[in-house]
Computed example of a mutant assay.
Amino acid sequence: MSSRTTLPKGVWFQKKRLATGEVVRYGYLGRGAGMEALGREGSPDFHTRLAEVLRRAPAEGKVSHLIWRYKGSTEFGKLAPLTQRDYRRQLDKVQAKFGGLRIQAMAAPQISDHIFRWRDEMAKTSPRQADYAVSVLGAMLTWCKRRGLIAENRASGVGDTYSSNRRGKVWSPADEEALHKHAHDSLRHFAVFAIETGLAQQDLLALPKTAIRGNVIVTRRLKNGTDVAIPISPRLANVINELPQSDSGHVLNKPDGKPWDAKGNGIRSAFRDACALAKIVGLTFHDQRGTYVTRRRSMGWTAEETALTTGHKVAGEQGAQSSYVDRQTVAIANAERLWARCYGPDSEQALQTDLQTRNKKAAQKGG
């Protein structure tokens, strides 16, 4: 039996009953072949052993050493903090399964079958997590191959087990109304923010008050660190005006005025319960992001205009060009234009002018 601990990630404990009847706990770091015994909790050597293990690099020649080097690489350090956290979780699975293998064995043709079987076994519980684990393994092996540390990346040809097309999963106004009837104000505010900004749940949980700048919301996606700016619709402006005063630095808070759990447990539970009461099935919280994109494209927003508000890649912005572009500056200017065109006092005239300009450009291109 393991239990939570405030010690470094990867440390866990197992209870053991002594001959005297006393129950003690023994600590371990890691899982599988690379697991390290730390000794009895509270013993003089426990923290000394832990510090020694954390400082020590895994033995060279094993896959565990490759994992250790990848975690400490410049490339890994450039990943967004949230991505690093998720990658570490998946690399723990890689360590448990392949950490004890020799590097040569990891590059051998026969290892492909083992990776497939590992993926298939995990897919019985969660296909998406199985695919993610293999994806992270592949990313690590690609890094290793570029460094000349391994001859072949045997995870590169392993496909996904999970496939999902959520294009048709769009929240209707009726779905929203049903949800709001069974939601307290804090959940309703959260849901309107989701569908009017297109931000992911994790971004909304962390959204600071300073993100609201006049007619736009300016923030950065936690998933990939991409800057986004979103024009504030009249509906969203009404909700912002409804928000109760709070000492919290977050825009969205629980009914007691305190921030939601950063991991999303509280908001997920509240959302799930409200959906059950409203008899909403087949729609997820994340589908609100897709609904935002669908509605904005239906309003006439271009793919690039929409991408600058959602954090998706902008077509044609690659290589040297992307390195010279200040995405935040461009995103804010884009959001201000969209607000004026779609929501501002002269929005009708601005929209007509914009449509005329587009039609003229299309005609010239066609000619």
Rank of each mutant, 00 (worst) to 15 (best):
L54N: 03
L54F: 00
R55T: 04
R55Y: 00
R55F: 00
R56P: 02
R56M: 11
A57M: 09
P58R: 15
P58Q: 14
P58Y: 09
A59Y: 10
A59E: 15
G61T: 08
G61I: 10
G61C: 13
G61Y: 04
G61R: 08
G61P: 02
K62A: 12
K62T: 12
K62G: 04
K62D: 07
V63W: 13
V63E: 13
V63F: 15
S64A: 15
H65W: 07
H65Q: 11
H65L: 11
L66T: 00
L66H: 12
L66D: 06
L66Q: 12
L66M: 09
L66C: 09
L66A: 10
I67A: 07
I67K: 06
I67M: 10
I67E: 10
W68G: 03
W68Y: 12
R69Q: 11
R69N: 03
Y70E: 05
K71A: 05
K71D: 06
K71H: 07
G72D: 10
G72F: 10
G72Y: 02
G72S: 07
S73C: 09
S73A: 10
S73M: 05
T74G: 01
T74D: 05
T74F: 02
T74M: 01
E75M: 05
E75W: 01
E75C: 02
E75Q: 10
E75F: 00
E75T: 08
F76T: 04
F76W: 00
F76G: 01
G77I: 04
G77N: 09
G77P: 05
G77A: 10
G77M: 08
K78G: 03
K78V: 00
L79H: 04
L79N: 01
L79E: 01
L79F: 04
A80E: 01
A80Q: 04
A80R: 03
A80F: 03
P81L: 08
P81N: 11
L82D: 11
L82E: 14
L82G: 14
L82A: 15
T83I: 03
T83W: 10
T83S: 15
Q84A: 02
Q84H: 10
Q84E: 06
Q84K: 14
Q84L: 05
Q84Y: 07
Q84I: 02
D86G: 08
D86H: 13
D86Q: 14
Y87D: 09
R88P: 00
R88L: 14
R88A: 06
R88T: 06
R88I: 06
R88W: 05
R89A: 09
Q90G: 06
Q90A: 14
L91N: 12
L91F: 11
D92P: 07
D92G: 14
D92A: 13
